[in-house]
Each structure stands twice: as structure tokens, then as C-alpha cells.
Design a binder for these strands. Structure first.
Length: 714
DNA sequence: GAGCACTGC
């Protein structure tokens, strides 16, 4: 899929003249570093293993160098000789980008040449790219356009142990693609006539019978067998090996400094208090080195921060050199960056983090880790479809990951705030995400790939049956699936093409008929990103006043449109007198003044331009309803009818489709006015069942606009 | 009158 960022890259970096410049000493240093990696000792053997096995499981410990080195070994081992690309998937964008940059440097080329990366909004590859890092979700999207993934000779699925939904779906898909491609290659070998090559593929498809012919023929393309490598950090390679028919598994040693594990003698009743005591014990008794504390959420982090400051005031002057650095995902980036800055000499940093510090960010200088053994996790009840956030025990794998954070630069210590016997009771690893999320999107993608029997699909872990049925039902009600379970044309096909939740995609398609697609593009972009508003506790009143300037009595959707439009207007005005960079900087200041998270807003602008391009390619008409917000609200009702709710006498709301009783979240602009009938975006259970992003609608619209759900039966 | 861990297209 072409993206805006590709163009940016090519225009700014047109002739690849920014080739990495090396001084000889740096080149020498990189060479030595590469040689000293544990994986370097087994380079030849690994290349042989890949040659001899079509599927290989590699268990590589932290610091083994597998992610950066293996693709290079395979490149020099001849796996790109026939023009095939080596693709490496990562669960996270940052990892794909940073690893690609590192490997390009090691190869002495600019990123985008021989070594490149592709993530959503950013494609830094070219026709000469042979080693391509990407997110697993992006490769899934590529499969929709090229079901055989024919440009790849090798695909490496990295961090497979994390078992994200994308990884799991990809594994199932790759297993099937690999089988088809080797069958095709075998057939092709037996056919001397080049003209028959095309037919060879058809035969494979026919031979497999209708149930498994999900791969559409790709005419005229040469297909070679696909080499598949699954890389995992987990101790348990058996699951992957069994799934791939007893595939060979090899182990590569890591390089980590030793980490001392310390357990409490008794279970702690209050882990926050225990963490505080441990922080001060380390601070006063242990040699220098920063402390990383894993906590469950923003509120907990902020309260621990306050408590540390209180206790510090009681210490003698000389012992107060402790600097707190909070980090969690919704914290604005400029505040996040504080954890990466070096503390003044003699000052110890204590980093208070959510599990963002487990994998997503690596903080230098950590020597002590405090792990209370709990995490806030999303759970999903397939019977009700309710998502909730609960504090649960970590898994063994997670505890291991956390303690490893202490031994990256030097020997370290990890304080586990629970007894050793408790560790034995933890689950080995976290439940795969596919077993605890809504499946609508997964089903839509699989259907678009031609896989109709979802329950029969060869998942490494089968999702819950009720969950599948639930999602099939909602896709049917949205008009994406016909009664026979097949994707509808054009609605289902179009929905599958959009990188959005199915309901959002449906809203865009309907909006083009309601003549309010311009407004809907904005709303869907704003609903697709993390919270737009940022209200720090100490400035709660100010932030409320700021929000009032944008708020609409009709609800949160129209409020979001107001914010988006105000920001665009501000940016355009600023561009008249400033260059682009300065204008963007001014916008960030504007965001701060208005208590808007500028990272979320800029993300929303990216989503907006991507989905705008998508709907244009589909030939949908982008028109505006102007000031006629009635049309727009009717369109919302027609799309979000499954999330319609009626006010109850006590001020609570009853969801019509499920009979659940819920509350309007206090952050909604409709929290006070409480209209009779509303639609909402999402329902999350915390202390209460709260609905968020709410819009006022008319009760009578429902049977009119969603008869499939609210029609009167005769 | 309440707080939302983290990813991804």
C-alpha cells in the first residue's frame, strides 16, 4: 500500500545521498561488536539449518543478536539471490524502525536501500530492499493484496512468544502459504513447459478442494518455496514446533549480566507500601545505579511519586538525592523523555513505570528492579462482549522479562515483592490476546483472504467459540456478511480494506450516502486514537474551562469535530507566517494551552489522511453536511445502532442490544444533561460499567435506520 | 463525579 511517508522519504532523500558516513574507527568498532555477539559463533550452522529446514524455530535469549544478525547471515548465505526479500516482523513499530536503522548502519547503507522498514504511515523501502523489517500487522495487510506473499523468500516472525493477535493470525496464514508455495514449487519442478507454470498453481488450488482454496491464484508470478522462521524468547519452543508439524527448534544463548533475585519471606498485603520501603532501602543501602519500579497505572504512579517526596522530606539533607521519573503511555512525550536524561552527579533516579518499560522502552542505567508481581490487564467477557481492566498477577515469562531489565549493562538485583513459592504458582506465559479480545476485525481479514470457516481455521490457539459467534453476528448486522457467512460485495469488501474497527468502517461507508463523509472522517480518526484530552490532576479546573470552548451540547463526537477543526484552522493560520516546522511547534503549544495531547492529535491527523485516501480510492464521495448536524447524528445512529442506550429513571442507561445497565463516563460532555436516547463508542468496566464518547440521537431513528436490529416483526 | 496497562492496521 503506498503511503504518504513513502513520498516524503523519496522527496527528501531522493538519490539516497545521505549514505551513512563512517569513519574507519566506527566501522571497525561495529565489526568487533558484531563478532562478539553470541550468535556470531553459530553463523554457518544457522545458515545450514535454514537451508535444510523449511520451518525453523529459533529460541534466542535476550542479547543474542538474533534480530539484527540472522537476516544478514541469510542475505550473505544466498537467500536473496533470486530476488526474494527477507521479511522480519515485529510486534511494535519502534522496534521495526530502530532495528532497521541499526542493521543498515552495520551494512554500511542508508535505510531504504538494501535494508529498509515499513510500518503504518511510513514505508522506507525501495525496489532494492532485500532485508525488510515491518510490523506484523502490516504484513497481514500486505497479504490482502498478495495472498502468497510472493515477494518474500524468507519470513521471520520475531518475538512470537508475545502472541499478539496479529502474530497469531499471521502464523496461521504463513503456515498455509508455506504449504501452498512448496506444493506449487514441487509441481513446477515437474513441468518443463514454462507455459504450464500458471496452470500448476490452479491445480494446487483445485486439488485442495473448496474448503481450503483461500488463496486466489496470482497469475504469472513465479513462486518459490517459502522459508519460515519463528523466533521466540520464551523457554517453550514446543508449542510452536508442534504447531508446525514437529519443526526443528534451535537454541541460541544470550548475553545478559547476572541478576540477583530477591523474594519476600511473606506475601505482602500492600504492594505499594512494600515498594516504597524497598525503594528507600535500596536508596540508603545499595551502591549507585537507578531503580525501576513496575506499577499498574497512572494513578498509582502519581500517588507513589507523592509518597516518595513526602518521605524524602523526612530524611537528612544528604540523603535526599533521589529523582522520581514517571513514565506511562498517555504521558506527553516531552515528560516521558525525562527518564532517558542522565541524573545530575550523585543523584539516583527512581523510574516509576507501567509495563511500557517491560518491552516498549529500554531505559539505560537501571541496576535495581522492583517487581510487585501484578499488572493491569485487559480482559474480555465473550458472553457479554464487555472489556474490563483488572489488576492480575503477572506470568512467569513477564516476571523474567522484568528482572532482565536490571542486567542490561552490569550485574543487577531484582526485588520481587512476593515469596518464591508464589512465583511457582504464576502461569507460564500470558494468555494469548486472541483468546481475550473482540474478533470482528480478525474475522473480517480472514474472510477477505477467502477463509470462510473461521472456527475451522488452523489457529495455534483457538479463540473462544462464543466469541466467534458473537463477532459473526455483529458483522452480519453491520451488513459485512451475507446469510451464508460470505463477505458481502461491496460493503464487506470495502470494510475489509479499511484499517479500522468494523463499526468505524461501516460508519464511513454510510456517511458517503448520508453526505457527511467529511465530518465522519474526522470523527473516526479522532475515535481511533488514544484520548485526545489530557488533564493532569493539579490543573483539573483549568482543563475543564479549556474543554468548554469546544464542547457541543449534542455530544462528544461533535466536540471532537470542533477540536479537530480548530486545530486545523490554527495550523493553517500559523503556516501563513511561519515555516512548516515552526507552525507544527506552535500547534504543540496550542495543544498544551488547550489541554490536548498533541501526540494523539497528530496521530489522528495521520489516520485522517490515510483513511481519506482509502475512501477516495474506493470511489466514495466526500461531501460535507455543513451545519446540518442532524444528518450527521442520524448517520451515527445508523452506524452505531448496536451501541444505543435509553435513559432509566435513576439516570443510568440500558443498552438496547444487550440489556446491560451502564453509566455515562464523567469525562463525557453529556455527563450532566443525560439525554433520553444516545449512541456511544465503547464500553469499559472499571469500578463501574462506563460508556464513553456519546452522542444524542432520537429513539425513533433506530427502527427506521437499523431495521435489521430494531425492526418490528410482523 | 472518574480515572485507561500496552500494542497494531
Amino acid at each position: 500500500m503506498p503511503s504518504m511517508a513513502t513520498q516524503n522519504f523519496r522527496t527528501s532523500n531522493g538519490n539516497f545521498q545521505n549514505e551513512a558516513k563512517f569513519d574507519p574507527t566506527r566501522r571497525q568498532k561495529i565489526k568487533e561488536q558484531r563478532k562478539s555477539l553470541p550468535i556470531a559463533a553459530v553463523e554457518k550452522r544457522l545458515v545450514e539449518e535454514v537451508k535444510n529446514n523449511d520451518t525453523l524455530i529459533i529460541v534466542g535469549e535476550t542479547g543474542s543478536g538474533k534480530t539484527t544478525q540472522l537476516p544478514q547471515y541469510l542475505y550473505y548465505g544466498g537467500f536473496c539471490r533470486e530476488g526474494g526479500v527477507i521479511g522480519i516482523t515485529q510486534p511494535r513499530r519502534v522496534a521495526a524502525v530502530s532495528v532497521a536503522k541499526r542493521v543498515a548502519e552495520e551494512c554500511g547503507v542508508a535505510v531504504g536501500q538494501k535494508v529498509g522498514y515499513a510500518i503504518r504511515f511510513e514505508d522506507v523501502t525501495s525496489s532494492s530492499t532485500m532485508i525488510k523489517y515491518m510490523t506484523d500487522g502490516l504484513l497481514l495487510r500486505e497479504a490482502l493484496l498478495d495472498p502468497y506473499l510472493s515477494k518474500y523468500s524468507v519470513i521471520i516472525v520475531d518475538e512470537a512468544h508475545e502472541r499478539t493477535v496479529h502474530t497469531d493470525v499471521l502464523l496461521g496464514l504463513l503456515k498455509s502459504v508455506k504449504e501452498k508455495r512448496s506444493k506449487f514449487a514441487n509441481k513446477a519442478l515437474n513441468i518443463n513447459n514454462a507455459n504450464s507454470l500458471k496452470n500448476g498453481l490452479q491445480e494446487v488450488a483445485e486439488h485442495d478442494g473448496p474448503g481450503s482454496t483461500f488463496l486466489k491464484p496470482c497469475h504469472g508470478k513465479r513462486l518459490s518455496p517459502l522459508k519460515l522462521i519463528i523466533m521466540s524468547a520464551s523457554l517453550d519452543a514446543r508449542g510452536f514446533s508442534e504447531y508446525f508439524g514437529g519443526a526443528r527448534a534451535v537454541h541460541i544463548q544470550g548475553r545478559q549480566y547476572p541478576v540477583d533475585l530477591l523474594y519476600t519471606l511473606q506475601p505482602e498485603t500492600d504492594y505499594v507500601d512494600a515498594a516504597l520501603i524497598t525503594i528507600f532501602q535500596i536508596h540508603l543501602e545499595e551502591r549507585d545505579g537507578d531503580i525501576l519500579v513496575f506499577l499498574t497505572g497512572q494513578e498509582e504512579i502519581e500517588s507513589v511519586e507523592r509518597l516518595i517526596h513526602e518521605r524524602l522530606r523526612q530524611l537528612p539533607e544528604g540523603n535526599r538525592k533521589l529523582l522520581t521519573c514517571p513514565i506511562f503511555s498517555s504521558l506527553p512525550s516531552e515528560k516521558q523523555n525525562k527518564v532517558f536524561r542522565l541524573a545530575p552527579p550523585g543523584v539516583r533516579k527512581v523510574i516509576l513505570a507501567t509495563n511500557i518499560a517491560e518491552t516498549s522502552v529500554t531505559i539505560p542505567g537501571i541496576r535495581y528492579v522492583i517487581d510487585p508481581g501484578v499488572v493491569k490487564a485487559r480482559t474480555y467477557d465473550p458472553d457479554t462482549g464487555i472489556e474490563s481492566l483488572d489488576i492480575v498477577k503477572t506470568s512467569k515469562a513477564q516476571a523474567l522479562q522484568r528482572s532482565g531489565r536490571a542486567g542490561r549493562e552490569a550485574p543487577g538485583k531484582c526485588y520481587r515483592l512476593y515469596p518464591e513459592s508464589e512465583f511457582g504458582k504464576f502461569e507460564d506465559s500470558t494468555t494469548p490476546e486472541i483468546k481475550r479480545c473482540d474478533l470482528s476485525n480478525v474475522i473480517l481479514v480472514l474472510k477477505a483472504l477467502g477463509i470462510d470457516d473461521i472456527a475451522g481455521f488452523d489457529f495455534i490457539d483457538k479463540p473462544n467459540r462464543i466469541s466467534i459467534i458473537r463477532s459473526l453476528e455483529s458483522l452480519f448486522l453491520l451488513g459485512a456478511l451475507a446469510e451464508d457467512g460470505k463477505l458481502t460485495d461491496p460493503i464487506g469488501q470495502q470494510m475489509a480494506k479499511l484499517p479500522l474497527e468494523p463499526v468505524f468502517s461501516k460508519a464511513l461507508i454510510l456517511a458517503s450516502q448520508f453526505n457527511c463523509l467529511e465530518e465522519m472522517l474526522i470523527v473516526i480518526a479522532m475515535l481511533s486514537v488514544e484520548s485526545i484530552f489530557y488533564a493532569p490532576r493539579e490543573k483539573l479546573e483549568e482543563s475543564r474551562t479549556a474543554l468548554k470552548c469546544f464542547s457541543s451540547p449534542e455530544g462528544d463526537h461533535l466536540t471532537l469535530i470542533n477540536v479537530y477543526r480548530a486545530s486545523v484552522e490554527f495550523l493553517e493560520k500559523s503556516r501563513l507566517t511561519n515555516n512548516n516546522e515552526k507552525a507544527e511547534k506552535n500547534l504543540r503549544t496550542w495543544c498544551k494551552e488547550n489541554f490536548i495531547n498533541s501526540r494523539s492529535l497528530s496521530h489522528a491527523r495521520d489516520v485522517h489522511s490515510q483513511i481519506k485516501r482509502n475512501v477516495e480510492q474506493m470511489g466514495l464521495k466526500i461531501t460535507s453536511c455543513g451545519d446540518d448536524m442532524l444528518v450527521f447524528r442520524r448517520c451515527l445512529a445508523a452506524s452505531f445502532f448496536l451501541n444505543a442506550a435509553l435513559k432509566q429513571p435513576d439516570g443510568a442507561y440500558r443498552i438496547l442490544s444487550s440489556d446491560l445497565t451502564v453509566q455515562i463516563h464523567p469525562s463525557s460532555v453529556l455527563f450532566r444533561s443525560k439525554p433520553e436516547c444516545i449512541i456511544f463508542d465503547r464500553l469499559v468496566r472499571t469500578n463501574n460499567s462506563y460508556i464513553r464518547n456519546i452522542c444524542r440521537v432520537d429513539y425513533l431513528w433506530l427502527p427506521e435506520l437499523a431495521p435489521q436490529c430494531y425492526g418490528l416483526s410482523e
